[in-house]
């Protein structure tokens, strides 16, 4: 699968956020998109996800793809978890193709067992972030798209999370936006 981003421009209220961006996202590759705040990292991800349309240019899914939108395991800039439900439920709720036992095992790789059955509103920012990462990785998807996935994670948790994500990437592409490219040198760094 290839996502072709061609001459994409996007502006909000007359202010250009993306100007003529070109990029091909291909299987098995990792793309680390970096740049200062407001440079359009999140906007680019939203365009790839089909949540927004470019002002000009195109974002196309090349090849034989059966859905109009890409099937993505996504970490949003915010955690976007259901506060009153626990971590296991938050991961299980998004897909019928995952089971509580498997999800529990996945979560245990990044979180202590004592935190799995608390409502996520009682977890710390870093723990919630890790739940969001597992949610993105646990469901079957064609691509992983992660917007600042390591916010609130200490160095050790960050390394663990990177290892986990790489393992879960499989044969699909991985797109990460971040301010901090440490430990992500295995991917292609793209500065916006």
């Amino acid at each position: 699968m290839t996502i072709e981003i061609k001459d994409v421009c996007k502006s909000y209220d007359g202010k250009a956020v993306l100007s003529c961006v070109n990029l091909n996202i291909e299987d098995e590759h990792t793309y680390v998109i970096t740049g200062p705040s407001g440079c359009g990292k999140t906007t680019l991800l939203r365009l790839i996800l089909g949540l927004e349309s470019p002002d000009s240019g195109t974002v196309r899914l090349l090849g034989d793809y059966k859905y109009p939108y890409i099937n993505s395991g996504t970490v949003f800039q915010e955690d976007r978890l259901c506060d009153d439900f626990d971590a296991v439920t938050n991961v299980c709720m998004v897909s019928r193709k995952v089971y509580r036992e498997t999800v529990t095992e996945e979560l245990l790789r990044l979180l202590p067992g004592s935190e799995l059955h608390k409502p996520v509103k009682e977890l710390s920012g870093g723990q919630r972030r890790r739940v969001a990462i597992v949610r993105a990785c646990a469901i079957p998807s064609d691509i992983l798209i992660m917007d600042e996935p390591f916010t609130g994670l200490d160095d050790e948790s960050r390394k663990k999370a990177i290892g986990y994500i790489r393992e879960k990437q499989g044969s699909g592409p991985l797109v990460i936006t971040t301010h901090d490219t440490r430990d992500l040198e295995f991917g292609r760094i793209i500065k916006l």
Binding site: F76, F85, V94, S95, I139
Partner: peptide, 24 residues
Amino acid sequence: KKMLEMAKVFRMPTERKLFYIYLP
């Protein structure tokens, strides 16, 4: 709206969207 967007991206089944996002 952000939770609805999350549900769209993950292709969350309708009944789960009702139960986990709309009902609370």
